[in-house]
Design a protein around this nucleic acid. Structure first.
Lengths: 342, 342
DNA sequence: TGCGCGTACTTTACCGGTAAAGCGATCAGC
DNA sequence: GCTGATCGCTTTACCGGTAAAGTACGCGCA
């Protein structure tokens, strides 16, 4: 790689500061890091000059010296098409980013096609010392990424879980609690036939929801079926059609994502099924989508940004070598809208 | 910063390879970079060992030596709340990321509150040598970021424009062409009263659209008003109500974003205005939202991922010191759906 | 025989930080 | 008056790459 310092203004280094202050590089480093061993006047003089010239540490130099990159990685194993439509990721990203940048840590993002590619990205980041730690989202059943981070001893926090975490610190979403809230709400309204359009069974979170859904129904004496999908609106519409045309016809359908819920709502309306009169519709994830359609959709809301921030904070702690307790389940609250109550 | 090499497996360095190959560090560097001055057998031996141990260059070391970080920055000056609801950003991000990672360049992302904070982030990145170049999105009228990148001589490509770019290379969206397509479509359907719910006037793109909207109307003999908003669904609903209750009542409304269009659609329906019977609705940005509502929304579609990739490619070229031609306007096509034609 | 020159390396310095070790000067203690 | 600790700073080495400069050796040729 050729040297290309560029013609722009020069960035000050500690050597520049040292020269201006009439001391050595080492003294400047001590002053800037607050290490003892310098007289107060000298320290103040150095800091004043550093401030004046607007010195900022060269990240590469610091990273090289400290064997720390000052960055965390987030590889999203999601086809772009899916990513784009899920406000969840944007919010999560934003929460993570806010927390990391308040710690002066950069976020390195990579969007890849599948978990295999994500595992490769993790290995490369590790080998290049690009990141000090990583966040794993959307844990799969038998996820190959878990083995990779354990083999490399790469500081990791799982966003999601439990299940398949193999001892990694994790922050469960609101899967179990959310399902309970939704079922309780519907049962409270008198529904006894509640079907569910689920996401992919490959996700650990889907399995948690499915188990909890079955238990919640059993507890309350209601009954219902589950169809697993790929989260697309087409699949949501198709599953809705299936439920509504095959006995026993449900009086409520729960969807694992907002996109599918909206698609289901449209499908029901096209089939002449009145919502909420004949059919109650609930989305698991809340979003603006749920608000703008008519009727608006009852959904299970959580503070996704805070969730991302909590996970990022835990990752920082793990990188610092602290023992991190596994997180409690994310609190959520059911937002009741027109799709379940008139 | 204390040394924390961690207990995990050791990453191989060129010194390790040199030792195993029985040559000096310098020779290894030559071999790995394909520099001349090594015999074929030696070169092959070194490369074989590097391959075997899975060597990857330490990014920090390379960055320090080459005065290049191997990363590009994208600071999004958007409140998280707005960001989350716009599929545009997710897609753009994904296109940018794909292009950069195929060039082994990392994307450093920062989400900040406003352009002032973004300008600060640019300065910090520059001072820390965190990034080799940046992408600017959502250019504002009189944008402070432009002055900063010019002062620092930071390689930059503007995603959007023209207007306010002050000589920076830019890639205009489909603002002018999109507006023309929409107006032509509506005029072709016989509409002569076309109102528009615009985004914020602070954005250069809004100004381009507003100018073009006026001209397109004038050319075709139609008339219409424009209300500027903050892109929220509430503002979209409110503007719709205003248009529909004040003469001259429009027969078509164009919205600058999908969220506002959906909000407008719901508002019109609640007011008892039939869509598309009494009112045609068009969204400027296409997205899954436009597809799932009923009636589905006519919108102006473009390949946002390709757009992001093109801009990223241009940024890489700028960083390499190449002269980059300003981009042509992004092609777009009108997707006609139920909200304008029955 | 010796000079020049290309080949195939090695040595060295450098990027900009961090941190251990070194080193005069001052000062307390016996 | 000498020892030894402490202070306040400098020197040095190191992180892992890159690249210029240096060197040993073989070979052609006058």
């Amino acid at each position: 790689m050729p040297r290309r310092p560029g013609p722009g203004p020069r960035r000050p280094t500690i050597a520049d500061i040292a020269q201006r202050a009439g001391v050595s590089k080492g003294s400047v480093s001590y002053a800037l890091n607050g290490n003892p061993g310098l007289s107060e006047p000298t320290r103040r003089r150095i800091l004043a000059i550093a401030e004046e010239v607007g010195w900022q540490p060269n990240r590469a130099a610091r990273a090289l010296s400290a064997s720390r990159s000052g960055a965390c990685g987030l590889a999203l194993a999601r086809p772009a098409r899916t990513l784009a439509y899920e406000p969840f990721f944007s919010k999560l990203l934003s929460g993570i980013e806010a927390e990391l940048s308040s710690n002066q840590i950069a976020l390195v993002l990579q969007i890849v096609e599948d978990v295999g590619a994500e595992a490769e990205a993790l290995r490369r980041w590790w080998a290049e010392r690009r990141v000090d730690g990583v966040l794993l989202v959307d844990l799969r059943v038998d996820d190959p990424r878990v083995a990779v981070v354990q083999e490399l001893d790469l500081p990791t926090v799982v966003v999601g879980g439990p299940g398949a975490t193999h001892g990694l610190p994790f922050f469960p979403g609101n899967d179990a609690g959310g399902v309970r809230q939704i079922v309780d709400h519907l049962v409270g309204l008198g529904h006894t036939r509640i079907d569910r359009v689920a996401g992919s069974t490959a996700f650990a979170s889907t399995q948690v929801r499915t188990r909890e859904f079955r238990q919640a129904l059993a507890r309350s004496g209601a009954r219902g079926r589950t169809i697993s999908t790929d989260y697309t609106s087409a699949a949501g519409a198709e599953a809705t059609r299936r439920f509504l045309t095959r006995a026993p016809v449900p009086t409520a359908i729960v969807y694992d994502s907002d996109i599918m819920a909206v698609a289901g709502l449209s499908t029901a309306q096209e089939m002449g099924v009145a919502v909420p009169g004949e059919l109650a519709v609930v989305s698991f994830d809340d979003s603006i989508l749920c608000e703008v359609v008519r009727p608006s959709l009852t959904a299970c809301a959580r503070d996704v940004e805070a969730y991302g921030a909590r996970a990022a904070r835990a990752l920082v702690a793990v990188i610092e070598g602290e023992q991190v307790a596994f997180g409690d389940e994310e609190p959520s609250s059911l937002v009741c809208r027109g799709s379940t109550v008139a």
